[in-house]
């Protein structure tokens, strides 16, 4: 039973790439390389043993986040509790494998043991951990499905932190203290902007694919401006000498989110791949603030992403 289930899951994983227009033989190694690079980057950037504990936390978060209540219910209906535990244990250990390999490579034995200790009993329950309900940010697009609920509004706490840090940035007299809140909030936006709307929410607008993308971009731009206007104003009022840097960050953020929007529809229904691509694009644009050639290269990707996004939306609208 375990073999049948794991084999089916692996097939699904490979098909995920095919469904998104990428051959699995290319997609799987690429995902592996990206995963390894990002993991090693995390270990290198966080000082001391903190990295190992952060990675341990990320691993546990990944395992709990990847649980699907509906699929677990389906499995529970199919088999005995013992059978369910066996397959979930096998599946969770398989999920753990890439993380465990990185931990073993980094010799984080204690953290690896902690993750294993968590995973084995957790497999019996395999439930997604509940998330606290958070207040949403007000938006002029409250009435529009998905325009406001995802991407911009579901980050109330981050917004409060952003405002507090902005105030700190203004009073310290150092422009480089003003920048982190901008990047933190942008990160939160990108993280929440991969949430996919069901095809019905695209179809219901009854417009062309170009019209839909234009409309999405317009609302994104308005929401972006509302959200980051405090940053722009604070920067221009308190650090007028650095106006070029402030404006560059503001513009780069909008370009990054435009790419993030295109990538969302380019990999429509792509789950984690969408997020990886969105973060990669956003990272490249942000890196471009220091090294413009990286941003320029990333911007070259925009027309391609836009074209694929347009094609996917066109397909949905034709349904």
């Amino acid at each position: 039973m375990v073999a049948t289930y794991i084999s089916l899951r692996l097939k699904q994983f490979a098909r995920f790439y095919s469904f998104n227009g990428m051959h699995p033989l290319l997609g799987i190694p690429l995902t592996g390389v990206l995963f390894t690079l990002l993991s090693i980057l995390l270990y290198n950037r966080i000082p001391g043993t903190n990295a190992a504990w952060v990675y341990c936390g990320l691993t546990i978060a990944a395992i709990t986040e990847l649980q699907n209540t509906k699929s677990n219910d389906l499995l529970k209906r199919m088999m005995t509790p013992k059978g369910f535990y066996s397959i979930k244990l096998a599946e969770n250990l398989l999920l753990l494998l890439p993380f465990a390999s990185i931990m073993a490579y980094q010799q984080s034995w204690l953290q690896l043991a902690a993750v294993l200790t968590f995973t084995i009993p957790y497999s019996y329950y395999s439930t997604k951990l509940p998330r606290p309900q958070i207040k949403a940010l007000p938006s002029p697009y409250k009435g529009f499905a998905y325009e406001a609920n995802y991407g911009f509004r579901a980050m109330f706490v981050a917004y409060l932190l952003y405002i507090a840090l902005l105030i700190a940035g203004c009073v310290t007299g150092n422009v480089y203290i003003l920048l982190p809140p901008f990047f933190i909030l942008l990160f939160c936006m990108v993280a929440s902007y991969s949430e996919m709307e069901a095809p019905i929410y695209i179809w219901m607008y009854r417009i062309t694919a170009t019209g839909y993308l234009a409309r999405k971009w317009y609302t994104l731009a308005v929401n972006y401006c509302i959200t980051f206007l405090p940053f722009l104003l604070a920067g221009l009022v308190f650090y007028i000498a650095e106006w070029q840097l402030i404006v560059l960050c503001f513009t780069a953020g909008l370009v990054a989110l435009t790419g993030v929007m295109f990538i969302k529809y380019q990999f429509y229904g792509g789950g984690v791949i969408t997020q990886i691509m969105q973060f990669l694009f956003c990272g490249c644009i942000m890196a471009g603030i220091a090294m413009p050639v990286i941003a320029a290269t990333a911007i070259l990707y925009l027309p391609f992403a836009g074209w694929r996004a347009h094609r996917n939306i066109k397909n949905i609208l034709q349904c």
């Binding site: 049948t4 289930y5 089916l8 097939k11 699904q12 995920f16 509906k70 699929s71 389906l74 088999m79």
Partner: peptide, 19 residues
């Protein structure tokens, strides 16, 4: 609910093995 990207026969075989 069905597992995404699964063929009909695979779904039935999974239940067959589970039972």
């Amino acid at each position: 609910y069905f597992f995404p990207r699964t063929r009909g026969i695979e779904y039935l075989q999974l239940i067959q093995h589970a039972r």
